[in-house]
């Protein structure tokens, strides 16, 4: 102990008093995350300065990637997701002759957060990809029949790949906005199927947008300590939450498309879900302008 104390004080004395306080706070946050968050919430504020029901800023840029048929870059606070759509042609499934394919995947590379390692998709990425697929398919935002080029012979496959660049919580909401914005940005070349040669040829000059009927947007909430409802949780708050609630609505009509609750059922959860749906109905107007 006697040998380490002088070095510690010498390191600290280099820092200004304000920096020393910041270091102490950062150490406390690392060692006691739950108490750290509790103390903030006792003052009715979150560590990033938002109130419990506050959202983070959203922005989207579309069409910046020329190698993709449609693309979008979405920022939700610090969380950054980039999504690109690649269109290919395939033979439709035998039991669904007149339908194309929509294949959404979300990648959480090791780059975006220290909690991921390089290699195959993590459990979190698999779960998120599956939930995104569920929402895109069940909302019927894009009728798969509109992707058919020639029944039983040729149809479009839309690979919707999203990659997280910066992970700061609530990736599901950001990825859904990115995927929907990228699909809205997508233009497919006009394709014709030649019955004699059995080949599909596309035109370089004539391009058409997709026939999108709905624009689903998701809004996520977390319940902390079975009492406090935290809107749009960050990566620091997410591991401390007992329950996560996601509400998906159509941003144009306001129709409720899906509501999911993951985690334990707190005593007041019934009211919480209702509160979330009401809050989501308010929020969709802001997101409609973005998508």
């Amino acid at each position: 102990m006697s040998t380490t104390t002088p070095t510690t004080t010498s390191v600290l004395s280099v820092l200004s008093p304000a920096e020393q306080e910041a270091l102490k706070a950062a150490t406390f946050q690392r060692l006691h995350p739950r108490v750290y968050l509790e103390r903030f919430l006792a003052e009715n504020v979150r560590p990033d300065g938002r109130p419990a029901e506050g959202w983070r800023d959203v922005s989207a840029h579309v069409g910046s990637i020329s190698t993709a048929d449609g693309s979008a870059l979405v920022r939700l606070g610090g969380t950054t997701v980039v999504c690109g759509v690649k269109a290919e042609i395939a033979e439709p499934e035998l039991d669904r002759e007149g339908e194309g394919f929509l294949v959404p995947n979300l990648d959480l590379p090791a780059m975006c957060s220290p909690k991921f390692k390089p290699g195959p998709p993590t459990e979190e990425a698999q779960v998120l990809s599956d939930r995104l697929n569920e929402v895109l398919v069940s909302s019927g935002m894009l009728p798969l029949t509109s992707l058919c080029i020639h029944p039983g012979k040729a149809a479009w496959v839309l690979y919707v790949d999203a990659t997280c660049i910066n992970y700061d919580g609530n990736v599901f909401d950001a990825a859904l906005i990115a995927m929907v914005a990228a699909l809205k940005n997508t233009q497919l070349p006009k394709a014709t199927f030649d019955e004699e040669t059995g080949r599909t040829t596309c035109s370089r000059s004539i391009k058409e947008p997709l026939q999108i009927t709905r624009t689903p947007v998701s809004m996520s909430f977390g319940i902390f300590d079975s009492t406090t409802l935290l809107t749009d949780p960050t990566s620091f708050e997410e591991p401390l939450l007992d329950t996560t609630i996601s509400v998906v609505v159509d941003s144009t009509s306001g129709a409720l498309l899906s509501a999911s609750q993951l985690g334990i059922d707190a005593t007041a959860a019934q009211d919480m879900l209702q509160t979330c749906i009401t809050a989501a109905a308010q929020r969709r107007h802001d997101l409609r302008k973005i998508v």
Binding site: E91, F101, S203
Partner: peptide
């Protein structure tokens, strides 16, 4: 493009799909 294995960890598309081929008359 032939897909060699079915990857359970991702959402999969059809077994085979190929990029669109363009008509020769309208070159870039």
């Amino acid at each position: 493009m032939a897909q060699t294995g079915f990857d359970r960890r991702r959402i999969n598309g059809p077994e085979q799909s190929h990029p669109p081929t363009f008509g020769t008359q309208d070159e870039v």
